[in-house]
Design a protein around this nucleic acid. Sequence first.
RNA 1: UGGCCCGUAGUUCAACUGGUAGAACGUCGGACUUUGGCUCCGGAUGUUGCAGGUUCGAGCCCUGCCGGGCCAGCCA
Length: 569
Amino acid sequence: MEQTSNPSANLATSNVGADFIREMLANDAVNGPYAGRVQTRFPPEPNGFLHIGHAKSIVLNFGVAAEFGGVCRLRFDDTNPETEDASFVEAICEDLAWLGFDPGEPAFASDYFGQLADWAEKLIREGLAYVDDQDAETISVNRGNFTTPGVDSPNRNRSVQENLDLFARMRAGEFTDGSKVLRAKIDMAHHNMAMRDPIMYRIRNRDHFRTADDWKIYPTYDWAHGQSDAVEGVTHSLCTLEFDSHRPLYDWFIENIGLAADRPRQTEFARLNLTHTVLSKRKLAELVGQGHVDGWDDPRMPTLRGLRARGYPPEAIRAFCEHIGVARVNGTHEIELLESFVRVHHNRFALRRMAVLNPLELVIVNWPEGLVDERLAVNNPEDELAGTRKVPFGGRLWIERGDFMVDPPRKFFRLAPGREVRLRAGYLVTCLDFETNAQGDVTRVFCEYDPATAGGQALDGRRVKATIHWVSVQHALEGTAMLYDRLFNDAVPGADGGDPLDSVNPASREVRNGVKLEPALADTQAGQVVQFERLGYFAHDLNDHLTFHRTVGLRDEWAKLQKRLPKPR
RNA sequence: UGGCCCGUAGUUCAACUGGUAGAACGUCGGACUUUGGCUCCGGAUGUUGCAGGUUCGAGCCCUGCCGGGCCAGCCA
C-alpha cells in the first residue's frame, strides 16, 4: 500500500513533541496494523451527568480522531441495569452537543449483548470459561489477596457440556440473582488480581432500559468493553489510568476470541483532577444528596450543566482541555488555569454593563434639578462591532461602597474627600463631603461634577487616577447576584486522608439581593454572559430574570494590594 | 505486605529519543489604559525525588533506595 496516499502518514513525522498518545497514533498510522485507520470512542455509563473530567476525555477522543482523519463514536456502556436509565442518555447527549461535539447516532454496549453471549459460548467450548456456583462472598475470599494466591473454585473444572447447559439456563432466567456467574478461566494465582478468573456475567433479573426483559444476565465492564470496541472497529481504546491493570485482561479476551491483528488496543492516560473541587461521580452525588449544592446543575458544580449555568463557555472548556494535554502522570490542575481560559474568552466576547453590588449613594450637588443625561457607553472595547448603548445619568447615583474611602491609604486611587475621579462614560466628579449614620458608616457621598467633562474627558487635559462605575438611582433595576467562592476550602479535598466533603466551603455562595443594574441589563438573555465592569463576568440565570451568577471575577490588582497593605480604617 | 504505573519551576506540561532545561497559568516589577480589566515589556523560581553506575557527556540508559497513585465489586 502506498503510504503517501494516506493523509495520516504525513502526521507521523510532524508530531515530534506531541503527547504520547498522538505519538502512538502517528506511529501506528505508518507502522500499525490499522492501515492508517483511526477510530476512538467516548464510552460514558448512563448513570450520571458529564463533568469536566469527561470533557478532557471527549476532547481527546474526538480531537485525536479528527486530527488523524478518523472517527469517534459515542457509545454508552450500559451493562448495569441497576443504576442506568434513559434520562441520562438524553442528558449526556445534550451536554456533549453543548460542549461542541456531535453525539450522532449513539451506540450502546447493549446492542452487542447477543454477540457477547455468542463469544462467551465460544470461550466455554474452548474450556476458557466456566459457570461458578459460589456466592459473591466466597468468590471474594477465594480470590486471595496481594500476597497470597487465590484458590480454584470447586466448579472450575466442570465439563464443557455442563457449562454450556448451565450458561443457557442462566440466560433463560432459571436462577436467582447472584446464584451463579460465568467466569473466565485464567489463573487464580496470577499476580494481577484482574486475571484471577474474572467474572464475565452476573445474573440480574431486572429490566434494562433498552433491552427490557430480554436478558437475565448482564456482562461486566471487562467482558463488555473491549469486545464492544472490537465490534465497532475501534482501533485505539483510550481510557483512564485505573484501567491499567485491566489491560492484560482486555488483551486476553480479545486474543482468546481470536480476533484479527487489527483488533483494538487499550491505552491509558491520567484522568483530570482540579483543585478546590471533586470529580468523582460518588462525591458529586454526595454534594447533591447532602444538600451542599442545589443539584447537578448548580453553578458551583464541575458538571457540564453546572459550568454552563455558571457561564463557562464551551470554547474555554475545550481550549483548557487541549492546553493541559495528556500524560500518564496523575496530577491536579489549578482551577485558576481553567478560569484564565474563561476570562480570555469572555473578555473577547462579553458585553460590558454596569452594576453595583454593594451600593452607596453619590449625590451630585451641582447637578441641574431633574436633568437626565443619556450617556453613550462602549459595549465592548475588545470588539468595535459590539457598538454602544445609552446609559441614563442623573444627580443621584449608586456607586460601589468599596470605591469610596474616608481615609484612604496611599495606593487607593478611587474616591475620597477632595479626590476627583471619573464616572465611567459620564463626568469627572470631585468629592466634597460625606455623611455617616450613628454607627459611623458612610451613608452618602456628596460630589461636584465638572460640566465640561461630558464623556469623562477634561478639556484642560488634567488626568484622574481612577474610573469607577455607577448606576442612576432613578433608573436602576433591582436584581440578584449570586457570588460564588471555591466549593472546597482545601486545594485537594481529602488529601489528608479524611472525607473530601469535610472541606466543603459553607460560604461557597453568597446571595446578594437588591443589586443595582443599569437599564440595558433588562435585555439580557437567559444564559448570556456579560461583564459587570470592574467586577467580573456574570451569567444571566437560565430561568429567573435579572438574576446573575458570577462566572469569575476580573483579575484585581487592588484586591491583591489590599492583602499586603496594613488593615485600613 | 505483593504487582503494575508515575516522579522535570508553585501548578500542569515540553525538551527533536544521550549534547548541558523551556512554555503556559500563577507570581514580582514596569509601560499603556475612560475597567486597578485587556494588551505589551521584563524579572525571579529547578541540586530534573535521592544515591550510585555506564558515557567525553545523563532529565533521558542501568541498579538500589525514597515518595505518590492504582489493584483484593457479581461498579465502571
